[in-house]
Simulated assay, not measured.
Amino acid sequence: MHRRDVLMGGAAVGLLGLAAVEPAGAQTSPASLLPVEVDIRPEIPANELHVIPDSFMLYWTLPGARAIRYMVGVGRPGLYESGEFYVGAKKEWPSWTPTKSMIERNPAYKEWEDGMPGGPDNPLGARALYLFEPGRGDTYLRIHGTNAPSTIGSAVSNGCARLVNDQAIDLYNRVPLRSRVVLHPKMV
């Protein structure tokens, strides 16, 4: 175990009272992106998503004070938006249309201002959960797959949380519409 793993895991333990329980035969490499089932505080309801940005972890809460922990990439500094949301839409192989502010930050995105069709080269990857707020509707925040798995464990996106595609598919299949999503504030 490396010092970074201990420090990053500390944020999740503090906010959610989480403790990892490694399954038998699991890889212990810190580079492993495999989901892990963990214990959580008993008062945290099942069927919620919690993103802990400082430790690059997303939790899908289960009954019995358990959760599945996925490693994610998050929004880069100044673009991560904490708060409470709900899953307002779900899409398989979603299309991607950069926002005006994304095009301003990266003029190369202008090529896709009318949208990029879904598929393996699309930055939203294989699946996407669209985050909504009451009264606001679509926030343009997503929990999605990625065609750039090397970005997992870093803060590089335009505000969304990203998983490797096979795990995005797994999460997509587990999470129903209207599920509560908490994007916890950055602590660092």
Rank of each mutant, 00 (worst) to 15 (best):
K90R: 14
R105C: 11
F85H: 09
N106D: 15
L79K: 15
A89I: 10
P117G: 07
W60E: 01
W96H: 00
S82W: 02
A108N: 15
A126Y: 03
A108R: 12
R69L: 04
Y80V: 03
P42S: 13
G83E: 00
A67S: 03
R69I: 01
E111C: 02
N47Q: 06
I103S: 10
G73L: 08
Y109K: 11
I52W: 11
G83K: 08
R76H: 13
G73K: 03
D114W: 14
W112V: 09
Y80A: 14
K100I: 03
I52E: 12
P107Y: 13
G83V: 11
E133H: 04
G78P: 12
P98Y: 04
S55R: 01
V74G: 03
A65V: 01
A89N: 15
P77E: 03
S95I: 00
R66W: 03
D121I: 13
E104W: 08
V51L: 11
I68K: 06
K91A: 14
A67W: 00
A108M: 15
E104Y: 05
V72H: 00
P94T: 14
E113C: 10
A89D: 13
W96T: 09
I103D: 06
G73R: 01
G125Y: 03
E48C: 11
A108H: 12
Y70H: 06
E84W: 02
P134F: 07
L79D: 07
A89T: 12
W93E: 11
P53W: 06
I68R: 01
R69Q: 07
G75V: 12
E104K: 04
E84D: 12
H50I: 00
M116L: 12
T97I: 14
E113N: 10
L129D: 05
Y130E: 02
G78F: 12
P120N: 13
P94C: 08
